[in-house]
Amino acid sequence: MTESHVDLTPMLDVVFILLIFFIVTATFAQEDALGLEPPPTDGTADPAQKAMVVAVAESGVVTVDGRPTDIGSVRANIERVRAASPDVRILIKADPKAKSGTVVLIRDAAYAAGYTEGVNFVLDRKT
């Protein structure tokens, strides 16, 4: 009785050629980065310039200038303060354990209220 033998070399060649083809022709998604500006630390910041502080606690509670508020009304608060004094800056102060989605919603609300720059972000490290 004779044994039959199957040569797997041609199949492996085809598999490697397909693998190389798919790696070379693959397109990768370009991730968008968050457009957050850290506050200036080189002394160029004007200490007399007012800043509206939007704080996010670890529990998800959002406060605007010390007053607790709903995430949906952050944009209205920013627009109200900007109408009163257009040179005010926005400072997003977030707890390190706060949800990043909440911080992004606040940043988006500031951009929607007309801020293209002047939105700063700091981590609220309580020691």
Rank of each mutant, 00 (worst) to 15 (best):
V119S: 04
V24N: 07
V64P: 02
S85H: 08
I78C: 04
R125N: 13
T27K: 09
T25C: 08
G118W: 03
I106D: 01
A33G: 08
G43E: 11
I78M: 03
V14S: 10
V74K: 00
P38N: 05
P10K: 12
D7C: 07
P68A: 11
P96G: 06
D70E: 15
T127I: 10
R67M: 08
I78N: 00
D7F: 04
M1F: 06
P86Y: 08
E3H: 12
V54K: 00
I20H: 06
A84E: 14
I78S: 02
T9A: 15
V53A: 07
P86H: 12
K99C: 00
V61H: 03
R89A: 09
T41P: 01
D70S: 15
G43C: 11
A29T: 07
A84G: 10
P68I: 06
G43D: 11
T127K: 11
L34N: 03
V15P: 04
P96E: 12
Q49S: 13
V74D: 00
E37D: 06
I20E: 07
L12F: 15
L123V: 14
D124I: 07
L91Y: 04
A57H: 07
L123H: 08
S59V: 09
V88P: 03
M1A: 13
S100L: 05
D108S: 11
K126M: 08
D13I: 14
